[in-house]
Amino acid sequence: MEKIYQILEQNRLEKYYNGFCNVGVKDERDFIDGINDETLVNMGFTQVEKNRFKKMKEAIQRFRAPQQEVYKTSSNMQKSLKTFVLRYTYPHCAEPKEIRDMDPAHNTVEDLMLRICYQEGIGNSKAVCLYTVEGMPLTDDPFFNTWSLTDRHIENGNELYAIFTPKENLVVNLQVPKRPQQELLDISGEDIVQCHIMLKGDYEVKMDLESDTIKDLRQKLSNESGIPENVLHYKSNPVGGTLKAAGISAESPVHFYLTSFPEDNQDYHESVNFFYNDITPSVQQTQKGLSTFYSTLHTIKYKYSGDGFKKVIGYIRKLSGCNPLAQSLYQQMCKNIMGTKTQKF
């Protein structure tokens, strides 16, 4: 029943906790199929509170997968679809937690993030970052968070690692791109250009190599693939205006990668930026303490990094149980690969 109170509290409806208990609410599913407008009126809900309850109910429905379909065979035997189960853990978590009622084909990574916050009773001041069990970040780019669990290759039985961080750390001047509407583009052109988009596959686009530019190719590829144009980025730096001048031909594929971060802002992790004090710690720290920490980390990076640091990282992994921490340090100290901002948390 503590979870019921937390749900109501998050929606500023906690004063009705006893009332819901009296009408028989025992878990969040009862809000969906056991409470109607008449119940709310009898409990004294105002119109504003009814709107909050409606929003809460929609959120609960969003977090839950559709009821498992049941199929009947000719012998009247029934079988249900296989249950999709995910496990997650986080710092100081006694044992892995389970999520059982999500639909991997329809629920997105963003849904999963919200569901974990909801399940853990995380308030509005914090958000969650997700990592693979090995410690690699899953939620760096808000564009990929709009993909389904299936598209992000999050599979039944996977275990994830969660880190809760103040929301201001995730505030970026980005808008999640929307899928382009089908436009009547000029499809003239006799040259078939083969394009490969990371994680999405191959596409063919009709172009005029003599006159079309990379911008034209991105626009047509966006229309063909359904991927927003501003997250499609050409892997090479074109040296000329036209496709032909950029060295693009019908014989070799053109590679595009996906990111919602602007091209001039993708090197956050280069140079010493990773060691700047630009995030809010989950546990309050003094400025002097943070300065000492970042300065020490920076010094270790440039004086003691390399394969010899692997044993230290092994100790850190074993003592902390935090694979994202160990993975981030391994990239920094042993591989000279700067981490992302999500890894910095």
Rank of each mutant, 00 (worst) to 15 (best):
P66Y: 13
K244V: 01
L297S: 12
P91Q: 12
A94N: 12
K72S: 13
I4M: 08
Y118I: 00
S249C: 07
Q61R: 08
M333D: 07
H298F: 13
I154D: 00
E229M: 06
V48I: 09
D141F: 00
G189F: 07
W147Y: 03
M1I: 06
Y234F: 11
Y17D: 01
H92R: 10
T73C: 03
V133G: 08
N11G: 03
V48E: 14
L160G: 11
I60L: 01
P180D: 09
I122P: 02
D186R: 08
M113C: 15
G157K: 12
A246R: 07
H92M: 14
C195R: 00
D141Q: 01
T280F: 08
S188M: 01
D141I: 04
R12W: 12
P238L: 00
T340P: 00
P180I: 14
R12M: 13
E270M: 15
E120D: 13
R64N: 11
N18Y: 11
Q331T: 11
M136D: 12
L170R: 15
N156Y: 05
C21L: 15
R152N: 09
K244M: 02
R179T: 06
H92C: 13
V254W: 05
V41I: 09
T150H: 03
N223F: 07
D140E: 14
G121A: 02
C117D: 14
I192D: 12
D33N: 05
Q175P: 00
Q327V: 01
T292Y: 14
A250G: 05
E110G: 02
F275R: 15
Q61F: 02
M207T: 04
N107Y: 03
P66N: 12
V171S: 08
E28D: 09
E190D: 08
